[in-house]
Design a protein around this nucleic acid. Sequence first.
RNA 1: GGGGAUAUGGCACAGCGGCAACUGCGGCGGACUGUAAAUCCGCUCCCUCUGGGUUCCUUGGUUCGAGUCCAAGUAUCCCCA
Length: 406
Amino acid sequence: MPHTEKTTTSKFTTEVHCAHQELWASEKDPAWFTYDIVAEDPTTHARAGVFHTPHGDIPTPIFMPVGTKATVKGLLPDTVKSLGTKILLANTYHLSQRPGDELIAELGGLHSFMCWDGPILTDSGGFQVFSHEQFMKLSDEGVKFRAVDYDGAWSWWTPETNMQIAQNLGADIVMQLDQCVGYPSSRTKVERSVELSSAWADRCYQAHTRLDQALFGIVQGGMHLDLRRRSIEHLEQAGDFPGYGIGGYSVGEPHEVMFETLEPLCADYMPRTKPRYLMGVGNPTTLIRSVAAGIDMFDCVLPTRTARMGTAFSYQGRMNMKNTKYVHDSGPIDSACTCPVCTGGYTRAYLNHLVRQHEMLAGELLSMHNIYFLLNLMHQAREAILAGNYGEFVTKWLESGGVKDF
RNA sequence: GGGGAUAUGGCACAGCGGCAACUGCGGCGGACUGUAAAUCCGCUCCCUCUGGGUUCCUUGGUUCGAGUCCAAGUAUCCCCA
């Protein structure tokens, strides 16, 4: 039976269930959650490194495919792994709703539950606070929200209960509960989101006790460099976070607007020795430029969602496989791609047929291709950083046709 | 041979006196960024396109006005011989 303890904050008391704590590691391996920087590019801020987790090492820069509900939609875990995936994302909000984090704990934790023995990162649900804003009521204590995408029931989350969910799930890396605001937002609103996210970072840090799990703080601050700076400085003071998420980007702003603050943030304010995770970015060109700015980790639903909608990434830009021009096309999606789909004899004509007929294999094959595409892109980026010529790599990419279509 | 029903844009359907005509499918294109998403949004008769022209099986009629009402014809489907 899960035991119960009480967590008290200034205004309320809430019951927190710790499910199957006996599964937790009793002591921390000193190698866990250390970040080794293997190479730094001489002409950009790019770094190549290795982040160590209980379920394996993560080479950086890295793209993390998203499996929100404990599945990368349509793909077998073995397939996901065979594409080169080193770490997967899942989501505490969705999994706490269905099937429930305590059930997952009872069944041995997220890794065994979803048949994935590699590293997993769970997002807190801060993004859902943003995207479900109309169904949420924020306060300093926490967030009251309706699970409109499930049964519509009201739930109440605090940083403490959110950490307990994350600990029950048992991912290798967990994100603090934060508040992500959209673009454009008033400075006042952004400032308040920084204050709230900072306060919640402190409480998450205090509430998080699981030794075989890394808690990442999240930098907010929108498009205001001074607020970004305030956010990261607070996190550094708050505790020894093994890594940092950078949230609040890719929320509708033009790419240039993001880089205006992301570049100086990484160059001047983010601690050099910790991994930096740019949350929610999956556009290939933005990935490449962000690595140059000093980002180490990315996640995004873009490759998998767009795949299910019939879009394939390529070195020429995005391709809508449903287009009539592919009906008679007997070539692979991208002849320069070495993924199992492009090298497996699957033609554009066949994919066009599958997409038009709404066959589920279309989404599966395109998801495989798109995930591989981004993983491979980051692999190439890493090789370039190790070779000391990442600047050239970026220039080459920007001068190729890819940019205008991504 | 007798009786009944139906004919609408690529297909399937709606429309019961004011219609370039509902809806779905199909077709063409687009969007998608810590997944409320195998979803969503446009366009889909013609033209010299903030307007004009020609449409709802055919022909004729009633009416200010007909896809809608009347008559005849044609075609298809069903039932009984």
